[in-house]
């Protein structure tokens, strides 16, 4: 019984961090209707940024967010503005521009391999003041960095929902995601909205990077692991849906941690794919997918 409870707790905590990573992806898709294949690479950039901030400045990994998150916002903003916008403009009459997906894949290759060229292929770990720290709650053991990651997920999601609901920019983002022509007729500069949305989606990866750094390795292709996870999560939850991303993340986290108690971890990976395909057959647009996608 205890191990099951432990599994649920661990799965929910790590799953919420997956969900946070998927949140950025789903936000970008919701607005631009493009899957950002460089999303995992943005996380990799975030993790390296956090790693070097902690290593060089000697600050607490969560304090590093003050530097890393704005840096990644501008990184995403510029990436959209310089690389993706020209293709998006050329394809503005296409509903789902495939070319843009390919461009983001090109960005993925470049980011991962430039990192490989600069920092080498080695796995880097950093010892922070909260690495390996735990809470004990009766018999339950809760990892502190994962728990704080869970808190970060809740804070960021609530902030994002507030931002989208109540600020002018948030309303513009929602308008552009519903109908980009109508939104631009209402005086919304759609490309500025895309830049901001892309920036926010990438900035979230900065938060995830800082949350992961106390207990996860950093290496040039770390993004690929999260890429595939995020893709599964957003399709499970429904593309473009914020609660879908979070719940999809928790589902994947729970499968991984519960499965790990009965079988080897590679088989739990397989179960994730099986559940994913099963959901696809029962409810193709995902758990929270919009009816418009049918």
């Amino acid at each position: 019984m205890d191990t099951i409870l432990q599994g649920i707790v661990n799965g929910t905590l790590i799953g919420s961090i997956y969900g946070l990573a998927a949140l950025g992806l789903t936000l970008i898709f919701g607005v631009i209707k493009v899957i950002n294949f460089a999303h995992g690479s943005c996380l990799m950039v975030g993790m390296y940024a956090a790693y070097w901030a902690v290593k060089l400045l000697g600050i607490h990994p969560y304090l590093a967010m003050v530097i890393v998150v704005p840096a990644l916002f501008f990184f995403g903003y510029l990436m959209q503005d310089i690389v993706i916008k020209p293709v998006l403009k050329a394809q503005s009459d296409v509903r789902e521009p495939t070319e843009v997906i390919i461009v983001t894949t090109g960005v993925w290759y470049i980011l991962d391999n430039v990192t490989l060229m600069i920092f080498g292929a080695e796995y880097r770990v950093i010892q922070t003041s909260i690495s390996g720290k735990i809470f004990e709650l009766g018999d339950l053991i809760i990892s502190k960095p994962k728990f704080y990651g869970f808190i970060a997920t809740i804070v960021v999601s609530l902030a994002l929902v507030w931002f989208l609901k109540y600020t002018k920019m948030g309303k513009s983002i929602r308008a552009a995601s519903l109908d980009r022509e109508a939104a631009s007729l209402m005086g919304i500069n759609q490309y500025r909205v895309y830049n901001i949305a892309f920036g926010i989606g990438t900035a979230i990866m900065g938060v995830v990077g800082c949350a992961l750094i106390p207990f996860y390795y950093v290496f040039p292709t770390v993004g690929v692991i999260f890429d595939v996870k995020c893709f599964i999560i957003v399709v499970l939850g429904g593309l473009g849906s914020i609660p879908g991303a979070l719940i999809g993340g928790v589902i994947v986290g729970l499968i991984e941690s519960m499965g790990a108690q009965f079988m080897t971890s590679t088989w739990t990976e397989l179960i994730v794919y099986v559940v994913f395909l099963a959901v696809l057959f029962v409810k193709p647009a995902g758990l929270f997918g919009s009816k418009l996608d049918w």
Partner: peptide
């Protein structure tokens, strides 16, 4: 039947 993104990711 769905948006292209679902097919690509699936």
């Amino acid at each position: 039947k769905l948006r292209g993104a679902y097919f690509a990711l699936s």
